[in-house]
């Protein structure tokens, strides 16, 4: 289908964005990402292990930045200052790369986002020239404020990070999608391909996930399932579902011409 996801002026044919964490090794990371068809991959920014042996492979060798659009994140940041500092370093690391995923957490137990710090960081980053894809709660008012600040995509959670609980509040997501003029991507909480399809059927522009693929019994097969679910969900949304009714009294087969 000739239909693209546009983020910060760039077109992507895949509406599935994937994380690169929690895999067994880099080879499995690469194989799963290939099976997912994802073009945008998230990475975390961390201190380099100084004792590291010189020849040790790095993630970037398995996922060359020429082949994928990197989305450096601020995972693990609990304040606006830490998030901004992390992404400025990421920009330097990736040669001036501007597209970033902002997430500011509020609680190490649940990993629930701190939207107050998120808004503060978003303001600084947008002013500083970043294209900010922002992870947030499923609060429609906050989502709209993040759009007004100038974020290039808003990414409400389906449920908590790593929980695999699926979409807990489709109604809020629907309101966020209805109000938004920037892409809305569900980020976090997807557990299985069915969840991803539902997100797309709600009208989301894309889905970002990591744990659902990486911790599946067969991550590579799950990555393929997610790719199909995203495509199926998108087409189902575009095709327009039939209305729900309790019953119809209109069978699909003709009522005339019955034998006898």
């Amino acid at each position: 289908m000739n239909e693209h996801l546009i983020i910060a002026g760039k077109a992507y044919h895949s509406r599935l964005l994937v994380g690169t964490g929690k895999y067994k090794d880099f080879a499995e990371t690469r194989a799963a990402i290939d099976a997912s068809g994802a073009q945008i991959v998230t990475v975390a920014i961390r201190r380099i292990n100084i004792g590291q042996t010189a020849g040790e492979p790095s993630l970037l060798e398995y996922l060359p930045p020429e082949e994928f659009t990197y989305l450096p994140n601020t995972a693990g940041c609990y304040s606006a200052d830490d998030a901004v500092r992390t992404l400025r370093l990421a920009r330097e690391l990736l040669d001036g790369h501007k597209l970033v995923k902002l997430e500011v957490l509020g609680d190490p137990k649940t990993l629930y986002p701190n939207v107050i710090e998120t808004i503060a960081a978003a303001k600084v980053l947008v002013k500083d020239g970043f294209d900010v894809m922002v992870y947030t709660s499923d609060d429609p008012i906050i989502a709209k404020q993040l759009e007004e600040i100038g974020c290039c995509a808003v990414m409400p959670l389906a449920s908590l990070i790593g929980s695999g609980m699926g979409i807990l509040n489709p109604w809020n997501l629907q309101i966020i999608i209805e109000n938004a003029t920037i892409p809305v991507l569900v980020d976090a909480g997807i557990g299985c391909a069915g969840d991803a399809a539902i997100a797309m059927e709600l009208g989301c522009d894309g889905v970002l996930m990591n744990t659902a693929i990486a911790t599946a019994r067969d991550p590579i097969m799950m990555a393929g399932a997610m790719k199909k679910a995203i495509e199926a969900g998108r087409e189902s949304f575009l095709a327009g579902r039939m209305p729900k009714k309790l019953y119809s009294a209109r069978p699909s087969s003709p009522t005339s011409g019955m034998i006898g």
Binding site: G19, G21, V43, I45, R46, R47, A75, L89, L93
Partner: peptide, 10 residues
Amino acid sequence: LEIIGAVGGG
């Protein structure tokens, strides 16, 4: 000094 790189993450 902080010396940082990119690692796997979601």
